[in-house]
Design a protein around this nucleic acid. Structure first.
Lengths: 194, 194
DNA sequence: GTCTATATAAAGATAGAC
DNA sequence: GTCTATCTTTATATAGAC
């Protein structure tokens, strides 16, 4: 199976545009023609790069997850404190939403899970799994340092923090507000402070 | 403009099926033909009851919001304690998700906000607004009784709790897990306990 | 690698008979 | 109130020329 790092410059542009369209309109909300218009080539040309929509989206998610994983490593490198790391994590979601109210790619795809091919669903699942693993690790660090109080356990708190951030984007859209997931994340994290 | 309480028995069945389809597949993920097959009539017959898809969905959301509002009143009638009310609130979302992993109707529609007609978007917005108002009121009650500690303010905590519940459904789907929003809600609420 | 042309299916919606 | 037939548009995808 193809890997996102193995694609041409044109294919990368297609992936860029596809990602933005999914974050704005969802899997069922965009078409090859939408991409074609944005990129400036004709619809059938896209099939030369990605035979099916499912294959295109699989690469989109694969790259998104990879990039996100790299951002988590950056956070670890820049911040030693668990609380600071969690706030930086929330900022990742805030930056996404601030950009035309885009949703987390895997958030919207998670909601549309049953419309996805098995391959895409697997990539989405992987995204959530490594995010939760990182959050658990970070929270346990904070608890060990005595900075965080994890009622119910690190796993439960990690799940809830991830849910707050994903949910804040979706509620923000429903309200038609620019209110950032950062605020909801900060509220959540402040509740954990010992 | 028509009101949901003013529709025929057949129209009600259409609304029932449409609601379930949206909660499972989203606004862009179902068609008049999907409803027709489920209800056992032909596609054009639906247009007799609802001229457009937007009008059908507007009624779906209107009824959903009304029903949800009544459930909030039931919670107030059954529980005096703010903590118990919040837990019962989380249970509402859990019950929805337990039913074939259905999402909150307004959660998924919020995510698809830009695909909605202005009328539908307004109904969705109203749903979130009265939910937040109820949560703020309930949280302030708990704070006044000394049971809850609302760091950052009731408004912020209300927003975050709503986000947790909406987000937990979407993350659960992405993970392919049955794990309930109730767990995330309980985690959140336990963090508020004084 | 991109194009035009085309196949095929599904979408929302309308017309008019029963 | 429901049906058949049809319109129009859009979707994913393929064939084959350049």
């Amino acid at each position: 199976m193809r890997h996102f790092s193995d694609i041409s410059a044109t294919a990368q542009r297609l992936v860029d545009v596809a990602q933005a369209l999914i974050q704005q309109h969802g899997y069922n909300g965009f078409s090859y023609d939408d991409i074609a218009r944005e990129v400036g080539i004709k619809k059938p040309s896209i099939h030369h790069h990605f035979a099916t929509k499912a294959e295109l989206v699989r690469i989109v998610v694969q790259r998104y997850a990879h990039t996100f994983g790299a951002l988590l490593e950056q956070i670890d490198a820049r911040h030693q404190d668990a609380g600071a790391r969690l706030l930086a994590y929330a900022e990742l979601f805030a930056q996404t939403y601030q950009n035309e109210r885009r949703l987390c790619l895997c958030g919207i795809l998670g909601a549309e899970a049953d419309a996805l091919s098995a391959d895409v669903a697997l990539e989405v699942r992987g995204f959530f799994q490594f995010n939760l693993a990182w959050l658990v690790k970070t929270m346990e660090l904070g608890a060990a340092a005595g900075a965080l109080r994890l009622r119910g356990g690190a796993k439960e708190q990690a799940y809830a923090l991830l849910a707050v951030l994903e949910g804040a984007m979706l509620v923000g859209r429903g309200l038609g507000s620019d209110g950032s997931p950062a605020a909801a994340g900060q509220t959540y994290i402040s509740n954990l402070l010992a």
